[in-house]
Amino acid sequence: MIAAILIILSITALIGLILGYASIKLKTDGDPIIDRIDKILPQTQCGQCGYPGCKPYATAIANGEADINQCPPGGDDGVHKLADLLGVEYKPLNAEHGETKPKSIAIIDESTCIGCTLCIQACPVDAIIGAAKQMHTIVEKECTGCELCLPPCPVDCIDMVEIPETTDNWKWKYPIHSIKQQN
């Protein structure tokens, strides 16, 4: 009887110790699910979802505050991936948040730019270079095409230019074969 109690006690004490140790040693910083959602989001940082960036939107999805169909740049594929990750039903993109556009980048018409720095402050990825009263320019490589620089520009000198299809970024298409009856 006593032996049994002792054995059970010692087992529970041991397991308790292991669990306690693990909770300290293997503690993860941040919520892994937020990072996994964030990984799927396109990082455009455009705010079309109603949150001030991809990470805040990911946090909102993880907390159940936001739906998975609010990211137009992520497109239908993105919604599918989020649905797969979270184990929820797929739903089409919510049109309220805008529609998926072809990937574009912002181009500043440098002759019209007055150097007001407003776009620099708006850019979520610091992709615009310039100083007060100096012409600004966009680092094409870093531009996510979020369009956040468009509204603040007082002289409308920023245009969104679609990235053209070239032999470099061209992709093989999904094979479509007409099912023809043999004569």
Binding site: L41, Q43, C54, P124, V125
Partner: peptide, 8 residues
């Protein structure tokens, strides 16, 4: 996207 995330 990783670069954009880092820059943001």
């Amino acid at each position: 996207a990783d670069i954009a995330r880092e820059r943001n």
